[in-house]
Deep mutational scan, measured.
Amino acid sequence: AQASVVANQLIPINTRLTLVMMRSEVVTPVGIPAEDIPALVSMQVNRAVPLGTTLMPDMVKGYA
């Protein structure tokens, strides 16, 4: 199954992502693919992302 990017902590709005904030997990619905984690580093989220939330393309500025 495809692993997705999941928030490893609460990520406040406009925060630049770092590796420690993200983990890969097989979840439904599928979000951003886990292999994109390196590309997500330093991108900003456009909303607060609670712990355990799957990151979707529309949550990350410049990803989609």
Rank of each mutant, 00 (worst) to 15 (best):
N46G: 06
E35H: 07
T18K: 06
P33E: 07
A48M: 12
P33T: 08
A39Y: 13
M43R: 14
V6W: 00
G62S: 06
I13Y: 10
M59D: 15
R23T: 14
E25M: 05
P12I: 05
N14L: 10
G62K: 07
G62V: 05
G52P: 00
L51P: 14
T18L: 06
Q44R: 09
T15R: 05
V60Y: 00
Q44F: 10
L17W: 02
V30K: 05
T28F: 09
N14R: 06
V49P: 01
T53P: 01
L55S: 00
E35S: 13
I37L: 13
M22A: 01
R16Y: 14
A48G: 09
M56E: 06
V60Q: 01
P57G: 08
Q2S: 09
V27T: 12
S42V: 04
M43F: 09
A1M: 12
T54Y: 01
S4W: 02
V6Q: 03
P38Y: 15
G52W: 05
V30W: 09
E25W: 05
T28W: 04
V41D: 04
P50R: 09
T53A: 13
P29N: 05
V5H: 01
A1N: 07
K61C: 07
N8I: 05
G52V: 02
G62T: 04
M56K: 08
V26P: 12
E25Y: 05
P38W: 11
K61A: 12
V30L: 15
N46V: 14
Y63R: 06
L55R: 00
P33S: 10
R16G: 14
G62L: 05
A1Y: 09
M21G: 03
M43H: 15
S24I: 08
D36H: 12
G52C: 04
V5L: 03
I37E: 03
G62Q: 12
E25K: 05
L19G: 05
V60L: 09
V49L: 10
E35I: 09
R23N: 10
N46P: 03
R16A: 15
A34V: 11
I11P: 00
R47W: 05
T28C: 07
D36Y: 12
R16L: 14
T18P: 00
D58G: 13
V26N: 08
L55W: 00
V60T: 02
A34C: 04
V41F: 06
T54P: 07
Y63Q: 04
D58F: 06
M22C: 03
L51C: 05
V49G: 01
N46R: 11
L51R: 10
V41L: 08
L51A: 14
V45N: 03
P33H: 10
P33L: 11
V20Q: 14
P29S: 04
L17G: 02
N8Y: 03
D58E: 09
P38K: 12
P12E: 13
P12M: 09
L10M: 12
Q44L: 07
A39G: 08
S42Q: 08
E25L: 05
L51N: 15
R23Y: 06
